[in-house]
Design a protein around this nucleic acid. Structure first.
Length: 702
DNA sequence: CACCCAAACTTTTTT
DNA sequence: AGTTTGGGTG
């Protein structure tokens, strides 16, 4: 797409606003409804650039996106546009208004995810509401570990009926916080099998909150929650409003109550607020996203609010959009936007309908993709221009095996994360504990690494440490039960040195790695593979100025995948993209394959009895479809692999046709079969009545 | 109290 | 298939 020329609607969205009597640019609340592929990022970037070239200081613009990746792209593009415009209009007043020369770099410091912005604001303003600015952010896994610990403490694991497992507990907690709803309501709606545990869960979450306070830690949800409560203090929200003249929010359809609340608390009249989104792409209700946020935006700020819709699609050929339009037209919610392709006239002779491919099972599905992907590469489409999308992380398992067999390189988004690998967590825990000695979760993990130290000894050590005001040097006097191992001595050296010569970074990372090395070799046979990951972690660590920034940035923006494929050396190579649909948001590829398009998966079986959930599944399929530029394949296996379904006895489930593939939708598709024909092999005609010669020979071997 | 082994139990998607 | 829990042993 042309990055510079804008269509009229885009232009309108970019320049929306006016000048006050003093000549300053201001803007009423603005909602941009941007369908898939309508140049949303470009429009947003142009608007940001427009603000800057009209005299708004770059550090007075706050840009919030859904992912770090999106934020980075947006900022890069904004910078390019600003520089271009400055070059083109050196003589005009534009250059005078901004005090940026066309050579000096532009910094847009306040851009990032809601969570990362929360992190920065809380470290700055938190003190005034009694927060310690040195808090540690814990990720999902740490939160689960802490919950696990508390669950044992409360003896909830010893009840007759099984208590929900730790990850479920965290899910429930997270839903309560982000939706700002009482636990009973959440249980009834989303976790009906846990509804008998509401009292115990409440007790658990109370203890969880207290323990986080003691350890000076915040989880992901806390970042939003604290921010939400921070801006309830009028004095502080006034300060923040004064700091930011303009706020741009991307993916507004996926914000939740807390996020919308934060915005309205800072900008009660919506002035300076621009939000962008597409209600047909709202797919995060499991994270408490409220589609109502975007639907009600105009009402909330009426009559000042303006709405601008973008409908020209620059990404896909028309047949793909036809499919998307038809799919959405059958929705009960009725998204009325029809997307029109900009590409209609170009290459009209090769406008194929998207394919609906029927295959026997997931094995055939994998083979089909391998075949297609290789064919396409032959005809000049790079692997990185092709993507395989799926509903669940493990749906690509079979395919991954097949890809490896054929030596097709790939990168998977949304699967096992780098930070979830045990050895990476180990090393990171060491560094985290050094950074925040009160951080029991890390300390616990580190201590258990030492041979001979299990859960209860680790607890004792942590209690002892607390008794001595978290001075690591006090541990010297702790009586280790077993004969003092040499690793205990080494750990002590590391801990004490970290507290005495504060701020040695990143050399401290090297010390931690050195300490961990023997433990790594002892615990994992494949330690030489894992060593590479630790090297990488150390390299990343070196890119951050301080220990604290390293830890919190890494938690907020985890690297994508483990394994050698995210090595810099491989970055230039060509690889196929595998991604969950959720992680594919905002991306586009020449060819897209969607796995397991069958009822039970599209829509997911857990959504089956909830009309709202079904609609979200429809939107999810829509997101997947609209990622494709040219070729789209929906693959429909007759049976597919479901790992965790013991009640069905068999591990294969026979998928019914997806209920989204109605007659009208199917008419937008070209139905094919793979393999095209069963090869006919002649059946032998001989028939033995008794034992055959072969059987006799085998029996007579003994 | 740590460690190992067997049995039970799994509800997707992510900052 | 992988994780979590419980029991038994040293």
């Amino acid at each position: 797409m042309n990055e510079i020329v804008l269509n009229p609607q885009q232009q309108q969205a970019v320049t929306f606003g006016d000048y006050d009597t003093a000549g300053n640019f201001f803007s009423n609340p603005l909602l941009i409804i941007a369908g898939a592929g309508t140049g949303k990022t470009n429009t947003l970037a142009h608007r940001a650039a427009h603000l800057i070239t009209n005299g708004v200081a770059a550090d007075r613009i706050l840009i919030m996106t859904f992912s770090r990746r999106a934020a980075k792209e947006l900022v890069d593009r904004t910078k390019r546009i600003v520089i271009n415009q400055l070059k083109q209009s050196k003589s005009k007043k534009v250059a005078k208004k901004t005090n940026i020369g066309s050579n000096s770099p532009i910094h847009i410091p306040w851009m990032g995810t809601f969570h990362s912005i929360a992190n920065r604001l809380l470290r700055h303003y938190g003190k005034s509401i009694g927060m310690d600015p040195k808090f540690t952010i814990i990720d999902r896994n740490d939160a689960e570990d802490l919950i696990d610990l508390l669950r044992h403490e409360l003896k909830l694991s010893k009840k007759a009926k099984r208590f929900p497992k730790k990850s479920t507990c965290i899910n429930i907690y997270s839903r309560c916080v982000n939706a700002q709803e009482p636990i009973e309501k959440i249980l009834k709606k989303d976790f009906p099998w846990c509804k008998d545990w509401s009292t115990e869960l409440r007790q658990l979450f109370k203890l969880y909150s207290e323990r986080k306070l003691e350890q000076i830690t915040l989880d992901y949800d806390d970042l939003l929650l604290y921010w939400y409560h921070l801006v309830e203090v009028k004095e502080i929200s006034d300060l923040i409003r004064a700091q930011f003249e303009h706020v741009l929010v991307d993916e507004y359809q996926d914000t939740n109550i807390l996020q919308a609340g934060i915005l309205t608390r800072i900008f009660p009249d919506g002035k300076g607020l621009t939000v962008v989104g597409d209600d047909a792409q709202s797919i995060y209700s499991f994270r408490s996203a409220e589609i109502e946020n975007i639907l009600n935006f105009p009402k909330l700020f009426s009559p000042a609010a303006a709405v601008i819709s973008l409908r020209t699609n620059y990404r896909s050929i028309q047949p793909i959009l036809d499919l998307s339009n038809q799919l959405l037209a059958e929705s009960k919610l009725g998204y009325k936007k029809e997307l029109l392709s900009h590409k209609t006239t170009k290459n009209w002779f090769q406008l194929n309908k998207p394919y609906l491919v029927s295959v026997e099972d997931d094995q055939a599905q994998a083979q089909y993709i391998v075949e297609q992907v290789l064919n396409q590469r032959e005809s000049g489409v790079d692997l990185r221009q092709q993507a395989v999308l799926f509903r669940n992380g493990h749906h690509s398992d079979r395919l991954e095996i097949e890809l490896m067999r054929h030596d097709i390189p790939f990168v998977k988004y949304g699967g096992l994360k780098f930070l979830e690998a045990a050895h990476v967590k180990d090393l990171l825990s060491i560094v985290r504990w050094l950074d925040n000695p009160k951080h029991r979760i890390s300390g616990f993990r580190v201590l258990k690494l030492l041979p001979g130290i299990g859960p209860s000894t680790a607890m004792k050590i942590l209690d002892y440490l607390q008794l001595y005001q978290f001075k690591f040097s006090a541990l010297d006097h702790f009586k280790i039960p077993n004969s003092a191992t040499s690793s205990w001595k080494h750990l002590l050296d590391l801990l004490i040195s970290s507290q005495s010569q504060d701020g040695q970074w990143p050399s401290q990372m090297e010390l931690a790695k050195l300490f961990y090395q023997p433990l790594l070799e002892e615990n994992y046979q494949d330690f030489y593979v894992r060593e590479g990951d630790l090297e990488q972690l150390a390299t990343i660590a070196g890119q951050y100025p301080t220990r604290e920034s390293f830890i919190s940035e890494l938690t907020l923006d985890p690297p994508i995948s483990s394994g050698d494929l995210c090595d810099k050396a491989h970055k230039d190579d060509d690889f196929l993209i595998l991604s969950t649909i959720h992680s594919a948001k905002g991306q586009e590829w020449q060819n897209v394959f969607i796995l397991n398009v069958a009822d039970g998966n599209f829509p997911n079986e857990y959504a089956a009895d909830d009309a709202k959930a079904i609609e979200e599944e429809r939107r999810l399929l829509n997101v997947a479809i609209t990622r494709a530029k040219q070729n789209l394949h929906l693959i429909q296996p007759l049976k597919y692999w479901v790992p965790e379904q013991p009640k069905y006895g068999d591990k294969h489930v026979y998928g019914a046709k997806s209920r989204f593939l109605t007659n009208k939708v199917s008419q937008c598709l070209e139905t094919t079969f793979y393999p095209e024909q069963k090869s006919l092999v002649a059946e032998p005609t001989i028939q033995y009545q008794g034992l055959s010669n072969v059987q006799k020979r085998i029996r007579d071997m003994w």
